[in-house]
Design a protein around this nucleic acid. Sequence first.
DNA 1: TTTGGTACTTTGTGATACAAGGTATTAAAA
DNA 2: TTTTAATACCTTGTATCACAAAGTACCAAA
Lengths: 109, 109
Amino acid sequence: MENITENARSQMRKGVLEYCILCLLAKEDAYASSLIARLKEVNMIVVEGTLYPLLIRQKNQGLLTYRWEESTQGPPRKYYSITDKGREQLAQMDEAWNDIITTIEKIKS
Amino acid sequence: MENITENARSQMRKGVLEYCILCLLAKEDAYASSLIARLKEVNMIVVEGTLYPLLIRQKNQGLLTYRWEESTQGPPRKYYSITDKGREQLAQMDEAWNDIITTIEKIKS
DNA sequence: TTTGGTACTTTGTGATACAAGGTATTAAAA
DNA sequence: TTTTAATACCTTGTATCACAAAGTACCAAA
């Protein structure tokens, strides 16, 4: 019941966020905090409480795996890697994303 | 727990759908069934149970108004129009949408 | 008066972003 | 030794939303 625009932005992020994670992990392994930092850089604001359950979901779906790695500064980090199944899913999401962009273009034309 | 891609597509539509409705109504007034037909044309599959509550929400937010119009075939139709406030919201959603596209492009590059 | 088409509405469910809080590890400061 | 600060991971409760599946109402033709 507050800023409806902010809510709209939040809703638009829904689903796209999952796509972003797969995109990022397709390029290199990463741990949660570094993913958050990367997403902040590109103005995709995400909080921990959103990202951690998302990573767990994707891992449970077999899209990701992880390994623990020591850090020189602070506690160990959980590095996530994309799996073959994750890359397949990413390819399908690429298609879905392009479809949506096309749809919006059609609607606006 | 079935087709995760279909679920992902559905999640991607979330929020974007609200945007689509404003885009369509910015061009011309329409009633629910015609909006559904239009969205099906552009492969944005939407069912009644999704669209009707959405229209009611947007009307309650002051983004839309409606009027009843007789039909030559069948029951009267509820024609929706976008309001000034709706056009403001649409402008902000244009911006949000372009931001997200830019974000994905950055992430994929 | 029944049937079929059109149109609008409601209810229940599952999925998900977010806010707010918590736990655990490490190293440096008090 | 104890405290503090930084880093990193995790959980719980809430609100929102798309969807499936139902229902209600109007109208015209058979």
